[in-house]
């Protein structure tokens, strides 16, 4: 009891305005797809992300781990500017995508989000048919013009998401009628239907059972050959299974980043070690 109280007070002290802590490990990769430098995120006057710099490599899976409230989801949502929907949220620093800062005023979020897709924590299919769920985004972007184009995109997306066999006979049924795991794969299919280059996944398996989780993980394994994936997860096992690199966040700081096998076998930072061994978090 006494210990917990002390820990909270310690954390409060850390949350007070301070400089960011230094990141351990190499933030650079040889072939970066997105480059983040000195990213700070504020909600009103509260700082959620401090001075985070990291590269996301081409066709790699980057896992972001850390205790609740460490800012990993916030950081992920910066990468396709989903934080724009929150009024009090503002971002400094730069996130380069195709050598352009996505927070530059000249950047339009619509094409950005078409290239940097997102899969959310809770499966959120549209309350429409399975077909419409997939075909809607290509339609609004004008990627498909004819019915046959749309059919093709629906089929390939569902095939890639490993859902085609299960739903091919009931494409006109509501997407919300599927099971949780199927819904999440439908959401992934929806995201890849517009052929993005990066897919952001915000704890995609936290609402799913182990079997559905295993399917999603297999899917990530396949998708990484074509897409760059950044995944936030609470499951250390998942991070170690699916990712090449892992970034550990703590209270808004990027504490450590490195190859997944290194992070999980010989972490350099004490906090990282505490977290992955389950002593903290």
């Amino acid at each position: 009891m006494q210990e917990v109280v002390n820990k909270t007070t310690v954390e409060k002290r850390i949350l007070a305005p301070r400089d960011s802590r230094k990141t351990i490990g190499t933030i650079h990769v040889s072939k970066p797809r997105m480059v983040c430098r000195n990213v700070n995120v504020y909600y009103g006057d509260k700082q959620a992300i401090r001075n985070v710099s990291i590269d996301i490599g081409c066709n790699e899976v980057l896992a972001m781990i850390g205790p609740s409230g460490c800012g990993k989801s916030t950081f992920l949502r910066c990468l396709n500017r989903m934080n724009d929907t929150i009024d009090s949220c503002w971002v400094t620093g730069e996130i380069l995508f195709d050598d352009k800062n996505i927070y530059d005023p000249s950047i339009d979020v619509v094409p950005l989000r078409a290239q940097v897709g997102m899969v959310f924590q809770k499966p959120n299919p549209f309350p429409k048919s399975i077909y419409e769920n997939i075909a809607w985004a290509p339609k609004i972007h004008g990627i498909v013009e004819s019915k046959s184009d749309a059919d093709e995109i629906v089929e390939t997306s569902l095939l890639k998401a490993g859902l085609w066999e299960e739903v091919k006979d009931r494409l006109d049924q509501p997407g919300t009628g599927l099971s949780g795991g199927q819904q999440q794969r439908l959401c992934i299919a929806r995201a890849i239907a517009v052929s993005p280059e990066v897919i952001l996944m915000d704890e995609p398996c936290s609402a799913l059972d182990p079997i559905a989780t295993a399917k999603i993980e297999d899917l990530i394994e396949e998708l990484k050959t074509q897409y760059t994936i950044a995944i936030v997860t609470h499951s250390m096992q998942q991070a170690s299974r699916v990712s090449q690199r892992t970034a550990f966040f703590h209270l808004g700081d990027l504490i450590e980043v490195g190859m997944t096998k290194d992070i999980f076998t010989k972490p350099s930072h004490q906090l990282t070690e505490d977290y992955i061994t389950g002593r903290y978090g």
Binding site: M82, Q115, G117, M118, W136, I140
Partner: peptide, 27 residues
């Protein structure tokens, strides 16, 4: 209308009007 629907639509790169017209208004 649940915000997750809006997020889902925004996440695939739709404009605000498309979100409203296709998903929010019908609901």
């Amino acid at each position: 209308v649940p915000p997750s629907i809006r997020e889902a639509a925004l996440g695939v790169g739709s404009s605000k009007l498309q979100v409203v017209a296709s998903h929010v208004l019908p609901l």
